[in-house]
Structure formats: C-alpha cells, structure tokens
Amino acid sequence: MTHVLDPRAPAAAIPPRREPPAPYRDVTRSDAAFRAFLHGLPGVDQVGAEARVGVLGTRSIKTTAKAWAIDTAISMVDLTTLEGADTPGKVRSLAAKARRPDPGDPTTPQVAAVCVYGDLAGVAREALAGTGIHVAAVATAFPSGRASREVKLADVRDAVANGADEIDMVIDRGAFLSGRHLDVFDEIVAVKQACGDAHLKVILETGELVTLDNVRRASWLAMLAGGDFIKTSTGKVSPAATLPVCLVMMEAVRDFRAATGRQVGVKPAGGIRTTKDAVKHLVLVNEVAGPDWLSPDWFRFGASSLLNDLLLQRQKLRTGHYSGPDHVSVD
C-alpha cells in the first residue's frame, strides 16, 4: 500500500490524535499524508464491480441453503424505525416484533437489534430487557450530520445514557468531499470515545459519496479511526445500499483485517426489501469477505420491511405455499 509522508509537516504541529492501528500509524500525520494514503488505495472499476455482483447475483440458493440464509438474515436485522412521528408505543411494538418476529412460529430467530432515534433508546432498552437484543441509536445529528462537534457528541452521550449499546453515527460528508479527511477522522475518534462501551457503526452515506473510489476511501478512513462497523446509508438518501457498494465495503473490511488483524463489521441499510436481496448480500459476504463475516456480530441489515418478506419466505419454505401480508404483523 503506498502512503506518502508530508515532509513539511513539523513534528510539533501534530495534534494529539489517536493513532490508527499498525502498519498505518503514520498515515494521519497531516491532511496531505492522509489524503495521499487514501488516494493511494487501489482504484475501483465501476464496470468490473457491477459485473462481479451481477455474477454473484446468479447464485441459485435453494432448499437447505435458502432456509439457512433466511434464518441467518433474520438474525442480522437491525429492525429500524427512524421517523419524526415515532412514539414510545411504536418503539414498543417494534421491540415486541424483534423478540418474536413470527408469533406463529417460535423457532424463528430473534433479530439482532432495534434501531431508533436516541431519545427513544430508553423505551427500546426497557422493552428489550433480558432478550439479548441490542439497542441501536442513531446520533451525531442524524441524518445530515450538520451540527457542531459538541452538539454531535452530546447527542451520542445522551443516546448512550438512555441505554443504547450501539451508536450509528454519520460522517461529515461535506468535509470528506472537500478533502478534509482528517476532520472526518478526528470526529469519528471523538465519537468513539463518547460511545464508551457502546459499539460504533459509522454511516458513510454512500449515496452522497457517489463513486466507488470514495466508498473505498471512506471505508478505510472509518476503520482507521476505530469504527466497529461501517454502514452504507442513513436510509434517507437515495440510492441507499446497493450491491456494488456492499462489494467494495466487504473488500475493504477483508483487506483491513488482513493488514491490521482487526475485524470490522458491515451494515448495508436502506433499500433492501426482499429476501432475494438479502440472500444476494449473504452470497456476496460469503464469497468476497468469507464466512467469518456471516454472523450478526459482523454483518447486519438495516431494514424495516425486509423482515416481513423474510418471514413470508420462511413460512413458504415450511408450509409449501405462500401466505399473504396479513400473515405477518404490521409494524
């Protein structure tokens, strides 16, 4: 991996900054050095990336493999509600669904987490007590991220205090796109610190980064800064999660672990609505990063309507016929 040190950066001017893991300790010494590093990552050929996911999309997942994939996908869902109209009642109903996605079939696995705004984290925490289901809260002025650092950190501390054990932050896309990569890095480090023990998912909002080269750079940036997960999108911007984006992120976490020994998770979010989409993602995880990522500890789906389609397909596998939308609960 090429990286260039900026010889003009005087040692004294280096702010006290959390160092990235070896062998990348020196890449954040200056904005120029960090930029050179991120732009020195191998490029991504969009046509080639799309062709690769196209071929992976033709994998035929049937019978036992399909059953495994559906249950695994259910266990990876971050069941999400992020509306201005959210209420404690809505969150409690979602929590009930998370615990028991299919009331008619107790063998259905639980989902991984419930994802809400920070002010409702307490309601979710209470409703999920004793289940092992995580409470994820979006923070840092989600979804735009347009607020001062202090406000964002306060947002994070508040969500953690309310009971969130996972924080989904957004990066400052404005800073990233204007080349202030170190600002983005420092902010992630600060948020990670504010999280305490809570897991940090870093939302790249790939729909605003646009190019796959940017997706790769932002993924590396977030991992170097200490993010536990990298996440595609807020779900408020279109396009949200796409397979080529997920491919590039899976390549990034795979390469990052090979280089540093640290494993980082991936969460595509927004736009994944069908079992077919979910299975395509699992195939991609399996064949690009490998089976080590095939667990809710390392891969999540940020979704709401996806769960019902997974449940319908699960019922179909069990009973041999399709039921209808009235056979799964409305959230």
Binding site: S60, A65, K66, N286, L294
Partner: peptide
C-alpha cells in the same frame, strides 16, 4: 477450507 457455514445446496 473449514466446512463452510453457508453451503449452497445443489441447484441443478
């Protein structure tokens, strides 16, 4: 390889 978690069932 260790026995894969995600074994694709035959799809002939």
């Amino acid at each position: 390889p260790t026995h894969s978690l995600f074994e694709y069932a035959p799809a002939p």
